[in-house]
Structure formats: structure tokens, C-alpha cells
Amino acid sequence: MDTIQIQIPSLSENIRIVESFIDNAKEKFELNDDIYGNIMIAVTESVNNAIIHGNKLSKDKNVSLRLKVDDNTLRFTVQDEGPGFDYNDLPDPTAPENLDKPGGRGIFLMKNLCDEVKFEDDGRAVILSFYLH
């Protein structure tokens, strides 16, 4: 089982570090373009949420990103140092009253791009799983 981990201060420009992390994973695990695209969008979205909503752009707080690979599954864990949130009480972005709202699509997107999305630690950690078929 392989595990790779990085930690970044909560600044939006650090998303490019996350992008190179994913590029390295693509090469190391020879990911095809379809799964790579889904991973890139879902993981950067998740890290962005952690930076903005979790850590409130506080550069004194870090976001950690861990990738675990086992049994043909890639598991990305994104963890922030914020207060957490109630992930069971999210507005449905596809509901007519929410269609014009700019936010609220991130988690919906992640659930559509990943094979599995799990929240832990009161919403401070999200685990995005991708099955390698």
C-alpha cells in the first residue's frame, strides 16, 4: 500500500501544489485521462472548500492532503483545521430555488465525480475514493 501526503497553508494560490501532487499521482499510478480529470476537479474542489470554508483563508491553518492506494482504489483524504460543518444538512444545488446561487455545488460535484465520498471528524475531513477498473 502506497501513501503520499502533503500539507499546505490555507492560501488559494496553493491549489497549484495540489495540481502537481495529482499530476505526480497520475504518472506514478498510470491513471487514464478520464479518472485523472475527475480526480483533478474533485480533489482541487475539496481542497478549495477546506481553504475557504474550513480554514476561512487563515494562512496559519493548514490543509492536509493524503493519497492512499490499495486494492485498485485511490483514496484522497482532505483535512482542514476549521470548526467542521453538518454535511447531512446541505441544500440541494439542483433544487429550483438554488439553481442561481453561485455556491453549494462543490460537494454535489464531488459526489458525481467520485465513486465514494465520505465525511469524517465533524466534516473537517473528506475522503474521496476512485475505483481503478
Rank of each mutant, 00 (worst) to 15 (best):
D2L: 08
D2Q: 15
D2F: 05
I4N: 08
Q7H: 01
I8M: 03
P9E: 11
P9H: 14
S10W: 11
L11S: 14
S12F: 13
N14E: 13
N14T: 11
I15N: 04
R16Q: 14
R16N: 05
R16H: 13
I17L: 07
E19I: 08
E19M: 08
S20I: 02
F21V: 11
I22F: 08
A25P: 10
K28Y: 12
E30C: 15
E30L: 15
N32Y: 04
N32M: 06
D33V: 10
D33G: 01
D33T: 12
I35D: 00
Y36M: 06
G37H: 12
N38T: 02
I39G: 10
M40D: 05
M40P: 01
I41W: 04
A42G: 11
V43N: 00
T44D: 00
E45A: 05
S46Q: 09
N48R: 09
N49S: 10
N49W: 07
A50C: 08
I51D: 02
I52C: 04
I52K: 02
H53N: 02
G54V: 03
N55S: 03
K56H: 13
K56M: 10
L57G: 04
L57A: 08
S58F: 14
K59Q: 00
K59G: 05
D60S: 01
D60N: 06
D60P: 01
D60L: 11
V63P: 03
V63F: 01
S64L: 13
S64Q: 12
L65A: 10
R66W: 01
L67C: 04
L67F: 02
V69K: 11
D70C: 07
D70S: 09
D71C: 14
T73L: 14
R75S: 01
R75D: 04
F76K: 10
T77I: 12
T77D: 09
Q79A: 14
D80T: 07
E81V: 05
G82M: 00
G82S: 05
P83K: 09
F85H: 11
F85E: 13
F85Q: 06
D86T: 13
Y87M: 00
Y87W: 00
N88P: 06
N88K: 04
N88D: 04
D89T: 14
L90Q: 04
P91T: 06
D92Y: 11
D92M: 08
D92P: 08
P93F: 03
P93Q: 07
T94D: 10
A95K: 06
E97G: 11
E97F: 14
L99K: 01
L99S: 05
D100W: 10
D100P: 09
R105E: 05
G106Q: 03
G106C: 09
F108T: 00
F108W: 02
L109G: 02
M110P: 06
K111E: 05
N112E: 00
L113W: 03
L113P: 03
D115Y: 15
E116F: 00
E116M: 06
V117M: 08
F119L: 02
E120D: 14
E120I: 06
E120S: 06
D122S: 15
R124C: 15
A125M: 01
A125F: 07
A125H: 08
V126A: 15
I127K: 12
I127D: 07
F130E: 03
F130H: 05
Y131N: 12
H133W: 15
H133G: 14
